[in-house]
Amino acid sequence: MTQSQSATARRLFVIAAIFAASILFAIVFSKTRIAIALIDIVWLAIEFSSLSPKVQKVLVIATLIALSVAFAFPFAWLLDTAIKPNAETMKNPPVWIPSEFQFGNFWKAITHGQDAIGYPPFLIYFANTVVLCSLIVSGVVASNAVVAYSFARLKWPGRDIIFSLTLATMMVPFPVLMVPTFALFRNLDWIGTYRPLWVPAWFGSAFSIFLLRQFFSTIPFELSEAAKLDGASEWRIFRDVIIPLSKPALAVVALFAFMGAWNDFLGPLIYILDQKNFTLSLGLQAYQSQNGGTEWNLLMAASSIVIAPVIIMFFFTQRLFIQGIAVTGMK
């Protein structure tokens, strides 16, 4: 106990030292207000547990609100800019409340540039992204579920060695693979198609295999044994026993895959050439012309349309999502 107490003391000392240093820093640079705020934080942190539960709760809520303002602020600014007239987007000092609420910007953002190219680019990018994302997500879910089943519940020679190899591949940074995979897809004549972006998703990925394997191994083996006694094949067990029980885990894998694919920039940047095949993340950059002349309000309106589906999806699935991460025991 004494040892752990001294360890605690040491940790507390480190935290205190950091805060002391920042207070000193703030005072030296005569930022008194920051110093006072920091001192308050330290005081609160020390006294927090001796406060009554009610006060504690109020403090937690206050902190939550303050922090969520800080976190939501740039996002709110994005929405704010989206409904401003363009002249007010970069005024000095910043215009907080637009003189005119231009909700039509969203529609303008969608049809922006239609005349120049002959089609509403945003809708094309959107359709492209939806097609690509659904291919990637379905591929990730299907392939990794099957593979993870094999690693979690079937015994075959070399399985454990290959599994540790699989884990090790998580350390391979994408840049290492960038050049040779480009060369590979070039030799297959796949440059300028979506294939380099979605085909690999159908062959499993280490992260998802790991996640699903952890989950599958928590399902009692008695279930499979019972099914086997009934003469079910591995495929039937996988399909009718494991999959129905694994929905939260599969949802997590799908959501991670979706977010990755929806926001991917580097992949399309390398492989997609024709503007009519752009995805949203690439297309957004096209809103920004190289010498400026960007209509910021439209760019932000387009961005908020891009984010909206993801935010809505997360809001309604977060419980399942967090549970899913918890039960997969990502550790």
Partner: peptide, 16 residues
């Protein structure tokens, strides 16, 4: 089971 294991793991073995 080993055969099934290989079949199930084959997408990853190929992808790897």
């Amino acid at each position: 089971e080993a055969r099934a294991g290989f079949v199930f793991a084959s997408p990853w073995l190929i992808g790897f």
